[in-house]
Design a binder for these strands. Structure first.
Lengths: 335, 335
DNA sequence: CTGTTAGCGCGTTCAA
DNA sequence: TTGAACGCGCTAACAG
């Protein structure tokens, strides 16, 4: 490895002059600067970021703690994060916790040891000891899509309640008055309860009475969507539309409908939530609430950068808007 | 930040003794070791990995250069990589190149500057200057799924030719004699040409003449699959089965078939390649050649670890087996 | 504008 | 078994 010392010796000047020249400090003679640059090029010099970080106490690395990179949802958010980080000179250390709480803690510790300048945390719920661990790392932390705001942790998320209501209102405007709902786990404070609440409020706004018989709980898997849909079909009167709390369950519902010979969207409209790639591949393409995945990542990263660079935050909680993507499962025209 | 010096002062002993105690060196008095451990705990000491790396010249970080983390294919491989890396004490720096050759070079340089111990490279083809850049970083590099072996770069990949042949043979055994092929770009030395070659060889083995009329080139997108399929339907005699070089195009083909009122698998069998999550969501679920995605990642990481730890490599090229996953698009039973 | 000195936190000699 | 001293590669403070 070739160091600043080498190029200093080569040029018969001092190491710190080399440092200044390479870092574009003011007050370096143009000719010196040029000679240094030339020598660096010639000797194939590569700065040692580790040493620099040790000296400056800034690593220009951010940690990303995530529960499952193989999930399209997280993968897209990650892309938004990496892109903004890189554009600002930061590298990203990827930590996949596989929803393991012990791993979460270990990763937070590891990242702190590695002197990261900041951390983005997007791994499941926030139990008390995880909150404690987050407070324990000295660097700024931003959480995505979780209930961090209630702990005073900077957060970016979507308004699950309002977005769910928007989707249901859309169905109502289409003329549907009997709308089944396939919920996620109701103990999920993120995508479970709030989306159910949104469903209810949209009905209420339209003066449609809430009927618990056409609300079925699933667990966000395709299989649970199929089962929930089958139960919905037994309700009397039968719903004319189904809203599911995520795409997977909506797709499961469409499969169940197909098995029962019910045609989408002619006999049943279906709407999902998330807008993963699955939604446009399934037949017919699924109408769905599109989360701004990349934006979740980039916004969180921008917040983190503000914190790391000592600029304040406007709001410790940012709520992003979604978009209803209408496809042929809901009366759209399809491809 | 609290350092070894702090705990040394606290205990009235020397800093290097603390270092030895913390690193479980032999020849440290048990009582000293215990006092140090206790003080470290009490003061909430956290080792500074940067400083350690600078001193030992090993960072325990690997770089991952990838072309698109939002693609399920790469995301799953990445999960395999992260998992093995973490299990061996390595962290992963994620670099998403977005297929930008300039970014590839920049990232390789960046990683070298960060003193990573090794790099896994999985970003598109290997043009000459990228090969040069790879040779230029001093740490070991392993490539995945690319033609690195011909440059002497350690590689793990699948046998695209043989796996494609396997899928086509399966169709032949099912009784199909007229099998259309939707290829990828034929200038793609990875998934383009080899898969076409596999298609041809399977036909030849079965004594079926090759007919260029029922080979249509696509570009791995769903839309191109639709167009290619439409062209295939004009061929006379019309094929009874279609093999596509990836899932996306196979799904596009299924969409085109649906538009033409052709039922899958009754009137047409369809087989894809890759086994992304899309394959089991589409209707009917797609038969496809399943690449061992996680294994690609974990195998590459294991190779890299051998290299980083100075153990040799058995083979500089490892070829993994795929598996044909039969689903209802091809005579399976469906869900 | 440049050289000198000191130090970031840790590991590793070499003596004692 | 422990202490003292030095070095990893780089930045920063202070002179000059």
């Amino acid at each position: 490895m070739i160091t600043m010392k080498d190029i200093a010796r080569e040029l018969g000047i001092n190491e710190s002059t080399v440092s200044r020249a390479l870092n574009n400090h003011p007050h370096v003679h143009p000719s010196t600067r040029e000679r240094v640059a030339e020598a660096a090029r010639r000797l194939n010099y590569r700065p040692n970021t580790l040493a620099r970080s040790l000296a400056t106490n800034r690593s220009y690395v951010v940690g990303l703690v995530i529960s499952n990179i193989a999930n399209l949802f997280f993968a897209e958010v990650t892309q938004g994060i990496e892109q903004v980080a890189d554009a600002n000179g930061y590298s990203v250390i990827l930590c996949d916790t596989a929803r393991d709480a012990a791993k979460e803690q270990r990763y937070l510790d590891l990242l702190a040891s590695r002197q990261v300048d900041g951390i983005i945390f997007m791994s499941g719920r926030l139990p008390a000891d995880t909150v404690a661990a987050i407070r324990n790392v000295k660097c700024p932390v931003v959480t995505i899509s979780r209930d961090g705001a209630s702990y005073g942790i900077p957060t970016v998320r979507i308004n699950n309640r309002a977005e769910a209501a928007r989707a249901v209102s859309y169905l109502i405007n289409l003329g549907h008055a009997r709308i089944g709902f396939i919920s996620g786990q109701l103990d999920d404070a993120e995508s479970g309860l709030p989306r159910l609440a949104g469903y209810k409020s949209a009905l209420e706004d339209a003066g449609i009475p809430f009927d618990p018989c056409i609300v079925q709980e699933g667990d966000f898997t395709m299989e649970s969507g199929m089962r929930a849909c089958t139960r919905l079909l037994d309700a009397a009167p039968r719903p004319t539309a189904i809203f599911a709390a995520n795409d997977e369950m909506a797709i499961g519902a469409m499969k169940a409908l197909a098995q029962h010979g019910i045609s989408v969207p002619k006999d049943m409209a279906v709407v999902g939530f998330d807008n993963t790639a699955l939604a446009r591949v399934v037949t017919p393409p699924l109408t769905t609430v599109a989360q701004p995945l990349r934006a979740l990542g980039s916004t969180a990263t921008e917040m983190l950068i503000r914190l790391m660079t000592g600029q304040g935050l406007r709001d410790t909680e940012v709520v992003l808007d979604c978009q209803l993507v209408v496809r042929s499962s809901c009366g759209g025209t399809g491809i």
